[in-house]
Design a protein around this nucleic acid. Sequence first.
DNA 1: TCTGTTATCCAAAGCGCTTTGGATGCTACA
DNA 2: TGTAGCATCCAAAGCGCTTTGGATAACAGA
Lengths: 344, 344
Amino acid sequence: MPMNLKQLAEHLGLSQTTVSRALNGYAEVSETTRLRVQKAAEAGNYRPNQRALTLAKGKAMTIGHVIPLGAQSEVLNPIFSEFIAAAGTTYSAHGYELMLSTTNAGGEDNIYRSLAATRAVDGVLLHSPLRDDPRIAVVRDLGLPFVVHGRALNEAEENYCWVDMDSENAFRLATQLLLDLGHRRIALLNGIETMTYAWLRRCGYLDALASNDVQADDSLMTSAELTETYGYKTATEMLKRKSRPTAFLVSSYIVALGVRRAISQCNLVIGKDVSVVIHDDELSYFDNGSTVPQFTSTRSSVKDAGHLAAEALIKLIENPDQKPESKLVPTHLVIGSSTGQCRD
Amino acid sequence: MPMNLKQLAEHLGLSQTTVSRALNGYAEVSETTRLRVQKAAEAGNYRPNQRALTLAKGKAMTIGHVIPLGAQSEVLNPIFSEFIAAAGTTYSAHGYELMLSTTNAGGEDNIYRSLAATRAVDGVLLHSPLRDDPRIAVVRDLGLPFVVHGRALNEAEENYCWVDMDSENAFRLATQLLLDLGHRRIALLNGIETMTYAWLRRCGYLDALASNDVQADDSLMTSAELTETYGYKTATEMLKRKSRPTAFLVSSYIVALGVRRAISQCNLVIGKDVSVVIHDDELSYFDNGSTVPQFTSTRSSVKDAGHLAAEALIKLIENPDQKPESKLVPTHLVIGSSTGQCRD
DNA sequence: TCTGTTATCCAAAGCGCTTTGGATGCTACA
DNA sequence: TGTAGCATCCAAAGCGCTTTGGATAACAGA
């Protein structure tokens, strides 16, 4: 039962107009009145009703995130929470709220349609784009401002706003590093390659191999959901081969933990007998170490991406006809203790 | 530019009242009219404006989740995303939206106050309660319906609504299992013990030791943020001792990965030389294996908790004077390959 | 023929805010 | 004295919906 504008106005013996203007910093109010109003508002703990305010202003002051469950993958992307936390912080700094929707496989279109029709949000942020992603066309047709975290390859990059890390170059550099250390049989443990980021990583990997005249070996490239078990099983199998890989390029920290388990179970030493390079999203609960990283890695902060994407979306919302300000976040290679000269 | 009720009504040559009633299933409308209205609504892709609707109804149809960042801990709790995804699914099944707010250390009170004053939400869900948690008193005083995921020990359990797993019994059983296997030096790698769940786990552990006349050893009990590094460092140090622990009771899967690294680095075999029991939140991206679990564990599904908590909160919102329907979710012990008879 | 029901529909108020388009009183200037 | 200009304030409309309290017509019963 917080008080409303009408009550506050009556209490002050003023009109709603004047009270509203006083609180919103308009000039048509004398400074003495403004002060009196502000005092009373504070004392009465008055805050404008969100829904009335947004109705009157015609803006929801809310941004939507839709997470598909059990769709492409049963696994809830572990970077969601970190990304969303960062984006959310930026939203509230600008007065926006964050609305989270979940949906089943394929239900995304309906959610976006519903968000647009009910005017529940001013814009949306798209997660985990596929190489061939239908969502972008959907939200564009709905006239809903949007930013993509990542890229889709079925749309021209300049035609929509995205924030992505440079996956391709990251894995090109990582592969080059391993090649420079003398490695030739380099395994790639990738994410699911219908997703753009995984596809681009593979491209970077293949590109580096090609530039160095190293033949790519299909039996060294796998792709699956990023779990510890995936890393363990895959690495175990590969290490049993006659000509086993001397290095692993791994798409996430958690998968690398499985790879490391496999390596030590084979009585091999990581960083000596076998090298490992990972991609490190710098998730707060996956601590790769800061001074001496466990794993040599290509680093890119998901948190930073979250902030950037949120900023971009807000700009787009508040300035609809501006050009999309996409951002390719650079990734940098950080040398840890998991890589070394090839001993083969 | 979706159409609104007025336009739809004009288009149909009906009043807004009739159209509204037709769409909302009231009896005062002839079936023929209702059908005509529904057809037109569908064709025109009409959906009531969320903000106008909630303003008129006096209900936000929204539930708030507040996640504190960099407060007690820098680490974003990895179970958030899974819990929120589950809760969100339940919300939308009941027509509610999920609003996510982030805040800095200590800013939570203000967020709750603001949510209540602006009538932005109909209720809130509290995460990660501390043993001595001030938030419950805050939201109760605000008159905001709420459910806690977990419990606080400074409030009588029957005085508020919570959904929690039985941490104490889980760790009591796990400890008993290890004791039954002959282990006496059982290390506890716990979470931060200002949080209730961690505290209760410790209680269960101590209780089992006491019941079996085993002296608790302070040097075997640690508590920290749940990272792989924490597990590795702690276990490494403990395994170097003259009388090293023969078993580890570990609060999370990710920490256990670090423990396992330490064990294998000492050339010990997990499940033979050293036993490990973990708590398994059944997070989708931490795959402990279903047929043959890697780790013996106390299991409790965070997803289930999310659904239950959401159901409870909605009931509370829609039926304000009902008694809180708290739920203690049982945890069960699942034997994996990480435990065995003590060999000392 | 008149009244009471029932089935349909509608005008208008209300939700709590912003914003448009004045109204009022005072000072200043000719 | 008359009027232009300025500083303050307010009544009322509007945002898009629900809901209250009738209105109207058709029909049946007396």
